[in-house]
Amino acid sequence: MSVARFWRKQQNRYNLIGNQCTVCGKYFYPPRGFCPVCRRDGKIVEHQFKGTGKVVTFSIIRSSSGNFKLLTPYVLAIIELDEGSRLTTHLVCDIDKVYIGMPVKRVFRKLGEEGSSGAIFYGTKFVPA
């Protein structure tokens, strides 16, 4: 991912900053600039998520590429944040420990890098709470 493309959403990725539609109350992370429920009637504001949630579903990735090669096998999971929004994450935990409903919390990790001389990307992953 190019530096500009990553940097654009860096604040969101570092600090779990998403959105809330103040009309319907729904929370969005990953961020959305347009409420899919209220559409033009919606009013989107920034919202910083607490960073706690639980595992909705998961898989253990045994074959991967790029930045995840060295991390393989690793847990991939969909997390439901306490505020109600869902996201996909590398769940940093022992592969035999994950289960549906497992409570998790945010953690700051490297998301990848553009080779050994390129930019390093950081952001939020999750660990068991």
């Binding site: 991912m1 493309r5 990953p30 990735i61 930045n67 995840f68 991939l76």
Partner: peptide, 12 residues
């Protein structure tokens, strides 16, 4: 941007 970067694969 929000699945790829998290380490998804299609089988995953």
């Amino acid at each position: 941007e929000w699945e790829g970067i998290a380490g998804i694969t299609f089988p995953g």
